Simulated scan of single mutants.
Amino acid sequence: MASTASLLTYTDDPVVHEAAPDIAPERRRGRGARTNAAGRFEPYARAAEDDGWDSLADLPPFKTEISYETARKIITRNQSPDISFDRSINPYRGCEHGCVYCFARPSHSYLGLSPGLDFESKLTVKSNAAALLEKELAQPGYEVRTMALGTNTDPYQPIERQYRVTRSVLEVLARSNHPVGIVTKSALVTRDIDILAPMAAKGLARVALSITTLDPKLARDLEPRAPTPAKRLEAVRQLSEAGIPVTVMVAPIIPALNDEEIERVLDAAKAAGAVSAGYVLLRLPYEIKDLFQEWLAEHRPQRLKHVMSLVRSTRGGKDYEAEWGKRMIGDGVYAWTIGRRFELATRRLGLNGERKPLRKDLFAAPTQPGEQLRLFS
């Protein structure tokens, strides 16, 4: 029987990003992506081919693999004019939730991995995140602003149950009275109510939960390892009852797939205790445009052309347009209609009223080892 290695075909030709070969369903069961094409920076294309001995049947399923990173910095800064934060922390690289539309997938290309199945099965833990954060917050001249958690990959994805990196980061922020905003689609965030509730009582914390759809079948297809919509709504209720301000993100809004649910999601969010809401129109940068169309071809083939036609109508005729001010909400008639529907629904429900900014005046920089001794020198 041929080895797995013998099944890999290499070429010195530059990678051409055409339709990638499908991975057998039994090897990707419970995953979002259908393929595992090389990232855009890779000089070689690689594909598994049957050698005539049914060798592909011997390839193992994609299992979650964990590696560890000793990061040199943990706070990522940005100057994007269309997002509300200028600094963030991402405890993990990759995300096991497997959301096929995830805008973070292309970041796996920087690791030499595929934005496809690799993104949701080859994960990296930033094990020194809390220690690094203490050092960075203690730097002279550190200027306090809200720290965002979960801006790239989900800080409460399944491996957080074991590694607890997000919780360790929250503990540092809580000790320092540092404001924090969390974005997640996981009910696991309720585990940390014991940290978040006291912070919220001081005006230091808020949580945004992403609810893409109320349809459990669609949610399972789109986000195979994320909690069900019902569990996310229950998380909204628990957080709200604990005094933690909750925003519900209807994200992404996918034309002709979940756009009809906008009002229903907002109604359910309000009933669960959410105080504000936001939305993001589907974004398909880099490799995601191929991964998403592959997903449509498998799960919603009859809607593929219609969905992509509407997507392109919001992006100047392209699959994606990254222009600031438009990348989150799109442009054109369809995008305008989505915006007005969302605006009317939130106004009707009393969402998105006056929102107080998180406090910055309570911050106390962490004390570094040896710092107290200088008082007696």
Score class of each variant (00 low, 15 high):
G116E: 01
S88T: 07
V236H: 04
I182C: 05
L375C: 08
T76S: 13
Y142A: 04
R327D: 05
H306W: 08
E143M: 03
A48L: 14
M328S: 10
R87S: 10
Y101M: 13
P106S: 08
S114E: 12
N352D: 07
Y110G: 12
R161F: 04
T190Y: 08
H299L: 09
G39P: 03
S313D: 10
I262M: 13
C95G: 01
Y156I: 02
R220I: 06
Y68W: 01
G370T: 14
E160H: 04
V246Y: 02
P21E: 03
K202Y: 03
L257V: 15
F292E: 02
E69S: 11
P43E: 08
D58F: 12
S3Y: 11
K126Y: 07
A148R: 10
E171N: 03
A201C: 05
E69T: 08
R264G: 07
A274C: 04
G316D: 06
S84T: 06
Q157R: 06
R303T: 06
L209N: 02
E287L: 09
R31I: 01
M1V: 10
I244V: 14
T212I: 05
I288F: 04
A201K: 15
L375I: 07
I254L: 14
G332I: 10
V246K: 01
S55T: 10
D86S: 15
N36Y: 09
R145Y: 02
V246F: 01
L173F: 03
N352R: 08
D319Y: 13
L8T: 11
S80C: 14
L209Y: 12
R312H: 11
A38W: 06
R237W: 09
K305L: 11
A230P: 00
R315G: 07
E287R: 11
I211A: 12
H306E: 15
A219N: 08
R315E: 08
N352W: 06
E294P: 02
L233Y: 07
G243E: 06
T4R: 15
G116D: 01
R374P: 04
Q139D: 03
E120L: 03
S109N: 10
V125C: 01
A200N: 05
G273N: 09
E234N: 12
A19R: 14
H97Y: 00
E261W: 02
A200T: 04
A271N: 09
A174Y: 05
T4Y: 14
I74W: 05
P179W: 12
A130I: 02
W53Q: 13
L8R: 13
A19E: 12
N177V: 05
L111F: 13
R31W: 07
L296P: 12
V248E: 04
G32R: 10
A277C: 01
T212P: 07
T247E: 13
S67T: 09
R77S: 13
A33V: 04
E261I: 03
A33H: 06
L137V: 10
D58Q: 13
A201N: 06
M328A: 12
L291H: 14
M249H: 13
P198G: 09
P229F: 04
E354F: 14
G150I: 00
T76R: 13
V265G: 04
L59P: 09
H97W: 03
I159S: 05
A235D: 07
R87Y: 08
D54H: 14
N78R: 14
Y110R: 05
E136T: 05
G150W: 03
S240Y: 00
K270G: 10
T64A: 01
D54G: 15
G203Y: 05
R232M: 04
G370L: 14
I338E: 03
G317D: 11
E263S: 02
